[in-house]
Amino acid sequence: MRLLSHNVLRNTAKGVVDGYPLKIEAAEIDVRDTEPDLTFIRHLLPTISFSGLRSAAEDLGLDAAAFPASYSTTLGEDEAFLRALHKALFDVRVLEGSLVCPESGRRFSIRGGIPDMMLTDEELS
């Protein structure tokens, strides 16, 4: 699971309002450096949830302070920031661990890098 995926995932069980951001409990992480495409990252910027990103960064012991609390149009001009953002969103992968709903405490497992977001019948009705 890339942090880009984590940035959109939420718990959609019945009774849960936001179910976001999911807390990451990582047992195994893999980091692979890839070359950022800055134009592309700039294009992504407005779609990123910065609260979700900071939460993930804190959970994984990354430098959460490198990321602002919210989006602003000037962010696209800061190349060092864009590189840090690329690294967080695309290079860091959680291979094993859990995602925990901040509201209900419900745990979703991550195995082989694949988050299991399946809900039970009780959680749906």
């Binding site: 699971m1 890339r2 880009l4 995926s5 959109v8 995932l9 939420r10 718990n11 959609t12 976001y20 949830s49 979700g52 890098g113 694949i114 988050p115 299991d116 977001m117 399946m118 809900l119 019948d121 749906l124």
Partner: peptide, 17 residues
Amino acid sequence: FSLLQADIVVNNGLPFR
């Protein structure tokens, strides 16, 4: 690409914001 385990039939779409 990424993989995700979710049941879109019983769930109301995808577990995404």
